[in-house]
Amino acid sequence: MTNPRVLVIIPTYNEAENLPTIVARVHAANPDVHVLVADDNSPDGTGKLADELADSDERVKVLHRAGKEGLGKAYLAGFAWGIEHEYDVICEMDADGSHRPEDFPALLKALVEQNADLVLGSRYVRGGKTVGWPKHREILSKGGNTWVRLVTGMKLADATGGYRLFRRETLERIELSTVASAGYTFQVDLAWRTVRAGLKVVEVPITFVERELGASKMSTNIVAEALWRTTVWGMQYRMKRLLGRR
């Protein structure tokens, strides 16, 4: 893949404080990429700000959504937009700066040079780390990933992370129309679909930085629900394989 057309999807809900900075950092890291801001009708004016950025820079696009439906729905809408506009590589990135755009070139390099179908920005491979997290949150995250490996059989260190690059062909192959998960569960779902499709997944170390501005959307309840859903998926998958062998 030479000079791929790259789209970075940034979902937003009340991210007016962070949006201009993150877009500028994305283009500082890679001036050629396009950014799609998928805004869920933010009451703080993030959508209007996104329009102003798009008016001044043709590399910025905006997808206005009717209301807050969660991270998964926003990404699915962004994926559909990116596929329709024939981007070669589509990236997930948070608006709050926790996914450092400065790590983006390494992820893209891995996708191209290692011929990967999905590249995960990983906090838990050698060289990866988190900055600014309380210890209990790091324990919860690492424990969640350990549980995901146990119940699904995926050999991924960080299947729950949301900083990742897909080839367009990968998204076309993993049946996005059947994805019903959202948030934390959504990231596990897409990684597992990619693994089950027999596609190549590569993990690249990143530094995850806790947001400085705005409020985090993550909660213990969201994580607990995600782990429960993942457990159900794993049990269903193993049962189907067992019945298939019989």
Rank of each mutant, 00 (worst) to 15 (best):
T2I: 14
N3V: 10
P4Q: 11
R5C: 00
V6F: 02
V8D: 02
I9N: 00
A16I: 05
E17K: 13
N18V: 09
N18W: 03
T21F: 07
T21A: 13
I22D: 01
R25K: 15
R25G: 02
H27I: 01
H27S: 07
H27M: 05
A29F: 00
D32S: 13
D32H: 12
D32C: 05
V33G: 06
V33C: 14
H34F: 06
V35S: 09
V35C: 13
A38V: 09
D39N: 14
L49A: 04
A50N: 04
L53G: 05
S56Y: 04
E58L: 10
E58P: 06
E58C: 11
V60H: 03
V60D: 00
K61F: 14
H64C: 08
H64G: 09
G67Q: 12
E69M: 12
G70W: 07
L71S: 06
K73G: 03
L76I: 15
A77S: 15
W81F: 15
E84W: 04
E84C: 08
H85R: 15
E86D: 15
V89E: 01
C91G: 02
D94K: 01
D96T: 07
G97N: 09
G97R: 08
G97H: 04
S98C: 14
S98V: 04
R100Y: 01
P101L: 07
E102D: 13
E102A: 14
F104K: 02
P105N: 10
A106G: 06
K109F: 08
A110V: 11
N115K: 15
S122W: 03
V125C: 10
V125N: 10
V125M: 10
K129Y: 07
P134E: 09
K135N: 10
L140Q: 13
S141L: 13
S141E: 12
K142N: 02
K142E: 08
G144F: 06
G144N: 07
V148P: 00
V148F: 04
R149W: 07
V151D: 08
G153K: 10
K155G: 10
L156I: 11
A157N: 12
G161N: 04
G161M: 01
R164A: 12
L165K: 02
F166E: 01
R168Q: 13
E169C: 09
E172L: 13
A180M: 10
S181K: 06
V188L: 11
D189S: 07
T194R: 04
V195T: 06
K200G: 05
K200N: 11
K200I: 06
V201D: 04
E203L: 08
T207R: 06
V209W: 01
E210D: 06
E210L: 09
A215H: 12
T220I: 09
W228K: 15
V232G: 05
V232M: 12
V232L: 13
W233H: 14
M235A: 15
M239W: 13
L242W: 14
L243T: 12
R246M: 13
R246Q: 09
